[in-house]
Design a protein around this nucleic acid. Structure first.
Lengths: 229, 229
DNA sequence: ATTTATATTATTGTCGACAATCTTAAAATT
DNA sequence: AATTTTAAGATTGTCGACAATAATATAAAT
């Protein structure tokens, strides 16, 4: 009966999957320093799993990009320099434009109501002054187009990019005190997503993302989140 | 000193990385049946590594999509139904369009000569009646824009998609006898990539990819590569 | 004969131990 | 004192063994 007493969390059936999720949550909490080394023995002990199990989870997180693996030297929490942020935002822009192209003709009353609901949840989190919840809610809002697209590869790609975004937001939040999304930041996004001009939506995405990047860069100039050694 | 920075991606320093590469090559050879179960003990013995090492490599290949992992049931070689092919091609189109947008202003004499060389290599393989080499050469040709873009995320994404394409081509080749790329298939691609109209290039990409998909679908109707259980 | 139940086998999941490598500290040399 | 060498310790890489689960074969029941 070596079974983990881990309160039967919602996630995967196997210990490796639960470990992956727990480690990811640990990272996205923002308690760890970017670039910090993750000692296998230490983390494994902390999560109460064997190193082999932990390592399989780490391989996956390295593939996502949250961790950086260097052979024989260790696995490190990712860093975020301006170039990284620029790449994340530009890639995200292209990805989300693709998603909207694929989901555009699949929109219906139900899915649009779903979108509205996701935005409401985001607004609630902002009202409740819950920055962490707001981050998650915003991610969930943006997940809408990927899910609706029904495009597996697109959804997977977003699934890998998303944690990196969440990580940045967590860092931002941690360092800046507060800095979640504004209440009205997605008004136009919602409106255009419900409209009938795909081009207008795509153009707005560029603007929306660019604005996010500019906010980010402005923040970076004030206080460095981290820099590579 | 440490040679960790940007070490050539040939064969990793660690056994896990070499195993990953060997297993991938084994898969891309096309000797395995799509959907076939990979018995850990058997493969580990065949590659002369421990199961733990093999499993780490398998996790990575599952993340790429070449393998499909089902908890407690095993890891299976991916399958390719028409929906998969459609997704691969459409995603590839979006990705490569992004790549050309990012690399467009970075083109110069040297990089364009490089592109020309990659195409020459492809033509050589076709002339030499070397289908496997032609597949690799075509992949290498298309990698050009990703590499030139300097966009890490984009390059990574292509790096994950590429093996799936190679896998399909290997299946195609295996089943169809011959079916590599045609000699002149990239003439316009090359010409436009050297030109000064990004829009024309992007439009051609849509056509180029659509044509590839159509060829693929035509082939699928003749003979099923595989179907899900 | 078909179906259900049970036992057996095979395979995956997880672990702890040892080997290879890196890091750090101390010693030796200049 | 600074640099190089060497030794000690810490950390990662790899392995084989055992546990948990699934797949298969056998027996029992209808």
């Amino acid at each position: 009966m070596t079974r983990q007493a881990s309160s039967a969390e919602k996630s995967g059936d196997t210990l490796k999957d639960r470990t992956l999720e727990r480690l990811q949550k640990l990272i996205l909490t923002g308690d760890l320093e970017p670039g910090a080394k993750l000692l296998e023995t230490q983390v494994a002990t902390q999560l109460d799993v064997s190193r082999a199990t932990l390592r399989e989870a780490m391989v996956q997180l390295s593939e996502i990009g949250l961790l950086a693996y260097i052979p024989f030297r260790g696995t490190f929490l990712r860093t975020l320099d301006p170039v990284d942020l620029d790449e994340i935002y530009s890639f995200r822009t292209g990805l989300e434009k693709m998603a909207f192209q694929f989901c555009w003709d699949k929109r219906d009353l139900i899915s649009l109501a779903d979108l509205q609901m996701r935005n409401n949840r985001l607004c609630d989190c902002i009202s409740d002054n819950d920055p962490y919840g707001a981050i998650m809610a915003e991610m969930h809002l943006h997940s809408w187009c990927y899910e609706l697209s029904g495009h597996t590869l697109l959804l997977q790609s977003w699934g890998r990019l998303k944690p990196n975004l969440q990580f940045y937001f967590a860092m931002h939040q941690k360092a800046h005190g507060r800095g979640g999304p504004l209440r009205e930041s997605h008004d136009q996004y919602l409106q255009l997503a419900q409209g009938n001009s795909l081009d207008a939506m795509l153009n707005h995405l560029e603007d929306h993302m660019r604005q996010g990047l500019e906010n980010t860069m402005r923040f970076l100039k004030e206080r460095n989140v981290s820099q590579n050694a």
